[in-house]
Design a protein around this nucleic acid. Structure first.
Length: 609
RNA sequence: GGCCCCGUAGUGUAGCGGUCUAACACGCAACCCUGUCACGGUUGAGAUCGGCGGUUCGAAUCCGCUCGGGGUCGCCA
């Protein structure tokens, strides 16, 4: 080793010892004679002091040492002079009086400062990610990630789970996200797909009898990216046999809470996670991943406007829709601009618009007059209606009521948006809280209007609720599933389900999804066969590890907790992937690419048409 | 794929039709400084304003296209 200690490890107890350290020049302070260097390595930082005339070995000039140079120093640990200790540094009580300095490597001036926390454009950071990762914030995020993952492994090991690796090269699936494909050299024209998750493998492992499996594993989905989405991301994937929903939820709750206790320092959280049905979540929050850190719940105001002359309301009700809304406390002071912004959001969400009503003045809500009501729809509203509204929504003067009249799907979407917007405008969000909730009883199927068929809400191996099986043939929309999501602060952290474990049940669901027997056999034959050999009842969950770590690290963007993330267009700026490959490589895998010229001219022709 | 935001010295920002031969801070270079820790001081170098095209007497500033980064909707079983 080139070092006897880590820079960050030296304490007063080392005083008098001769130590050898190696690391990077974090910052230097040259006083003409004496020079101070903060030497940084993976363990932390320490101040080394270089005095003129005491360096025994040959070094051209201390003055040539620059930030990010790599040094090895030998020296004695001294207590710092009284009054010159640095309380910001864990090694601030001591310093190293250097006797020997070796420059192990020099460094160009880095493209951005390593030794201070400033905002740098994403592209520059990603291009020089190896330098970005030297910065304190990134270093601590990546270290936290390691600790979290280790904690999870230890926890699950302690509960008799075993980690089993599953293949990365697998079979493309017809359902779900777009697959990343890998061409086969040995089988011309055939492709592997990278796993969107190890879902099928873990179920097969349950058939194998392992009973408790987990894996911390990369998953791949070729879809457009977001701040909380990468084309390759890490899941904690786990599966258990002979369990029901509550078993899986309880175990995961314990796991999460044990993590929070250790790593969510400074946060408050609920000691047991409430459960909420999908239907309730949609009704009260308009989304299946509600942020419960604040109220602003949705109410149904349809009754108030049953006989309204206002066409926006009456026609929505006629069409089977409802009038739903939220009360925003203190929203009467919102500017026209803010309200217009809400209306824009509503339009984006597919609604014709929304109605806002500001209730002004002071005194009891029952005593309002029409002059206290400010709304673009004021001429269609009666004082009595507004009082009824206020009673349902528990609104008082000074509040804002926002109403959306449309189908449940659209009003949910609109009010979810407005709710989140209003909460952030009113600063109702306590950033030091982690509000976890389990969302249960999802619908098993969703109607895919583009393809005019049912599709699986969770995935096609999810079991229906026993009591709802009777609707499978008559009305699939009524069938609820045994799926559950864990949601925190409005973000889905994980999701899972109790699976189907019988061949005939699986065939029935596949049939409902419009997958022919032939396709079922080709794409899922292995699962159907496996279910014939004593497949145990089983279920599990998968968590987004990136999101979990980001949550604990207080980061909003999962890129901040991934060592080498990709850009929004799925490019790796460090290496430049994806990139062209040689003709030979393509030939080996039996692929030919339309030449760029051909692609361009084809586009030109398309444009002319 | 739709919509939106951003792109000025190494970094972060300012400038938003002529006074910009582009400003400030940090960084960088040289010199000075024996106790600092975001050390300090003096001097200096460094960008033609992502690219292309257009409008204009005149463009970093307006318009169009394009490239790159980001947000969001679709999408993400």
């Amino acid at each position: 080793m080139l070092k006897s200690h880590g820079c960050g490890e030296i304490r007063l107890s080392h005083v008098g010892q001769k130590v050898q350290l190696a690391g990077w020049v974090h910052r230097r302070r040259d006083h003409g004679g004496v020079t101070f260097i903060d030497l940084r390595d993976a363990s932390g930082r320490v101040q080394v002091v270089i005095r003129p005339g005491v360096i025994s070995n040959e070094i051209e000039s201390i003055a040539n040492i620059r930030d990010e140079y790599v040094l090895m120093v030998v020296g004695e640990v001294h207590a710092r002079l009284e009054g010159s200790q640095n309380t910001d540094l864990s090694t601030g009580d001591i310093e190293i009086k250097v006797e020997e300095v070796v420059v192990l490597n020099s460094s160009e001036t880095p493209p951005f400062p390593i030794n201070q926390e400033i905002t740098i454009t994403e592209a520059t950071r990603l291009q020089y990610r190896y330098l970005d990762l030297r910065r304190d914030r990134m270093t601590s995020n990546i270290r936290l990630r390691h600790k979290v993952i280790k904690h999870i492994r230890d926890f699950l090991d302690g509960r008799n789970f075993i980690e089993i690796e599953t293949p990365v090269l697998g079979l493309a699936t017809p359902e779900g996200a777009r697959d990343y494909l890998v061409p086969s050299r040995v089988h011309p024209g055939s492709f592997y797909a990278l796993p969107q998750s190890p879902q099928q493998w873990k179920q097969l492992l349950m058939v194998s009898g392992f009973e408790r499996y987990f894996q911390i594993v990369k998953c791949y989905r070729d879809e457009d990216l977001r701040a909380d989405r990468q084309p390759e991301f890490t899941q904690l994937d786990l599966e258990m046999s002979f369990v029901n929903e509550s078993d899986v939820m309880q175990l995961n709750e314990e796991l999460i809470i044990s993590l929070l206790e250790k790593y969510a320092l400074g946060y408050k959280w609920n000691s047991s996670f409430p459960q909420m049905t999908y239907a309730t979540a949609m009704e009260k929050y308009g989304t299946d991943r509600p942020d419960l850190r604040y109220g602003l719940e949705i109410n149904d105001y349809s009754d108030v406007f049953q006989d309204s002359d206002f066409k926006v309301f009456s026609s929505a009700i006629e069409k089977g829709g409802r009038i739903r809304g939220i009360v925003v406390p203190g929203g009467a002071k919102f500017s026209r601009k803010t309200l217009d912004h809400f209306i824009d959001s509503a339009r984006e969400a597919g609604a014709g618009g929304l109605i806002w009503i500001q209730i002004n003045g002071t005194g009891l809500i029952e005593e309002i007059s029409i002059d206290d009501i400010k709304s673009p729809a004021v001429k269609f509203l009666s004082v009595d209606e507004v009082i009824q509204l206020a009673k349902i929504g528990n609104a008082s003067r000074g509040d804002l009521v926002i109403l959306a009249a449309d189908t449940d799907q659209i009003t949910s979407k609109v009010l979810d948006l407005v709710r989140r917007d209003a909460a952030s405008k009113l600063e109702l969000i306590d950033s030091k809280r982690l509000d976890f909730v389990w969302i249960t009883e999802f619908p098993l199927f969703e109607w895919d209007s583009d393809e005019s068929r049912w599709s699986a809400t969770h995935h096609l191996f999810t079991a229906p609720l026993d009591g709802d099986k009777k609707y499978l043939d008559s009305d699939p929309s009524l069938v609820r599933s045994r799926a559950y999501d864990v949601v925190c602060n409005g973000q889905e952290i994980g999701g899972g389900s109790i699976r189907i474990h019988k061949r005939e049940d699986q065939l029935q669901v596949l049939g409902l999804l419009g997958i022919s027997e032939e396709d079922a056999d080709e794409k899922f034959g292995h699962m159907l066969n496996a279910f014939e050999f004593g497949a145990p009842p089983h279920g599990g969950i998968a968590w987004g590890m990136d999101r979990t770590v980001a949550l604990l690290a207080g980061e909003h963007d999962i890129r901040e907790v991934i060592a080498f993330p990709k850009t929004k267009s799925a490019v790796d700026l460090v290496t430049g992937a994806p990139a062209n490959v040689s003709e030979n490589q393509l030939h080996d895998v039996h692929i030919s690419i339309d030449s760029i010229d051909e692609i361009n001219s084809a586009n030109d022709i398309m444009e002319e048409i």
